[in-house]
Simulated assay, not measured.
Amino acid sequence: MYETHGTVVGTVITDPIKRETGSGEEVMSFRMASNVRRRDRESGEWVDGGTLYLTVSCWRRLVQGVGASLMKGDPIIAHGELRTNEYKTRDGDPRSDLEMRAMAVGPDLARCSARLDRSGRARTALSADGSESDDDAPAPAPAEDGESAVVDERLGVLVG
């Protein structure tokens, strides 16, 4: 059983591949890399450190979302249960591989932008008095300058 949880920020380095287990359950997996960079105080230049490589496996509802959204080269954030798989190569050399059973995967919005598809979710807005309404009109939200703003449901951001 997995017991160590972690979050890794990195880049997808292989295209996600969907396969089916012997019991008929779908799983989507891909490899990702997380690089360390730091600024050298003496030279003032950026220096690359080590790279963490891991296999990310996605189950159940994540299969569809990852399959429709991610591809090689995408910047992501993955959170899940970590474990090490130990094995021997054909030559008998011992090896280990880090694997994450993902609970959440998404784009790293510090390095890209994303549009969300909310077609599968119920659209419930809160009215000004705090009660729920199911109308499709954007809900007003207070802006920083005291004027009203509107939530653009397509983008999920405040507009105006």
Rank of each mutant, 00 (worst) to 15 (best):
V9D: 01
V12N: 00
V12H: 01
P16M: 10
K18W: 00
R19Y: 08
R19E: 07
E25V: 14
M28N: 05
S29N: 13
M32R: 04
M32Y: 02
A33T: 09
S34A: 15
R37L: 10
S43A: 10
G44C: 12
G44V: 12
W46G: 07
V47H: 03
D48S: 14
T51A: 13
Y53H: 12
W59E: 03
R61C: 00
L62F: 00
V63K: 04
G65D: 04
V66T: 04
A68T: 11
M71K: 15
K72L: 07
K72F: 07
D74C: 13
P75S: 07
I77R: 06
H79V: 11
E86T: 14
Y87K: 07
R95T: 01
R95Q: 11
A102P: 04
A102M: 07
M103H: 08
A104E: 15
A104C: 05
A104Q: 12
L109Y: 08
A114C: 14
A114L: 12
D117L: 09
R121M: 06
R121H: 02
R121W: 00
A122T: 09
R123D: 05
A125V: 14
D129Y: 05
D135A: 06
D135Y: 05
P138G: 14
A141Q: 01
A143C: 13
E147W: 03
V159E: 06
G160H: 06
